Amino acid sequence: MQYAITLPADYDMRIIRHRVQSKGHLMDGFPGLGLKAYGVRERGADGSPVNEYAPFYLWVDPEAMNRFLTGDGFRGVIRDFGRPAVRHWQGLFHRAGPASGRPPGFFSRRTETVPEGADPGGCIADALARHEELATDDGVFTTSLAFDPFRWELVHFTLWADAVPEGAGESYRVLHLSAPGADALPAGRRW
């Protein structure tokens, strides 16, 4: 699951940093949450054209996602920024990488459209194979693949110990990681 809040070009991103610093720990023990990476992009940094607050979540329990979206924590997001569109996907793959013992500094998100007329199963199988290989990269904290059948997109999320490699997707700096149920996230293929 992810929502993205695009902020004005002159927005003081210290406000977001303070928000995460003062409230991020509140998700550290949220029942049913696998992990939440508090991600930001800052205009002019790490190749970003925009200021954006865009955390992403991996849920162990879909009911927990529902509780979060209708609970006090998300009401605060709505109060402060308006109600963002929340995207969620069907998980296809998740695996911790060799850097899972270090705190992640970044995550990447990349979408890949399943071409019209292509075999969706073949596209998914190819993406799964690439994620199996990616999960062995020394810089990978964890990597996940999801499927959006509404848009016919594959969505690639990878947490990196250090900078996002060229071509891995949009780069987000991780301000905090809440991972109360990371060990409970199913590993490997879910397809």
Rank of each mutant, 00 (worst) to 15 (best):
E132F: 03
P115M: 07
A127P: 07
R95I: 10
A99H: 06
P120C: 05
D138N: 10
G91E: 12
Q90G: 14
R130H: 05
A129D: 15
P103A: 13
A168H: 15
R151Q: 13
A129G: 10
F106D: 07
F81M: 07
G167K: 07
R130L: 05
D162M: 06
A129C: 05
T136P: 03
A179N: 06
P165R: 01
R173Q: 06
H176C: 03
R109Y: 05
A99K: 08
L134I: 09
S100W: 07
L159K: 01
S100D: 08
A168N: 11
Y172S: 13
G121R: 12
F93H: 11
L128V: 14
H156L: 04
D162Q: 12
G169T: 05
G121M: 12
P120Y: 00
A163H: 15
W89K: 02
L134S: 11
S100H: 13
V114G: 04
A161V: 07
A96I: 10
H88D: 11
P165Q: 09
F150D: 15
S171E: 03
A96E: 15
H88R: 10
T142F: 07
P165H: 04
F157T: 00
P149K: 02
A129Y: 00
S108T: 05
D126M: 14
R109P: 04
E133K: 14
L154F: 04
P115W: 04
P115T: 06
A146S: 13
P165F: 09
T143M: 01
G167V: 08
R151N: 11
F106H: 13
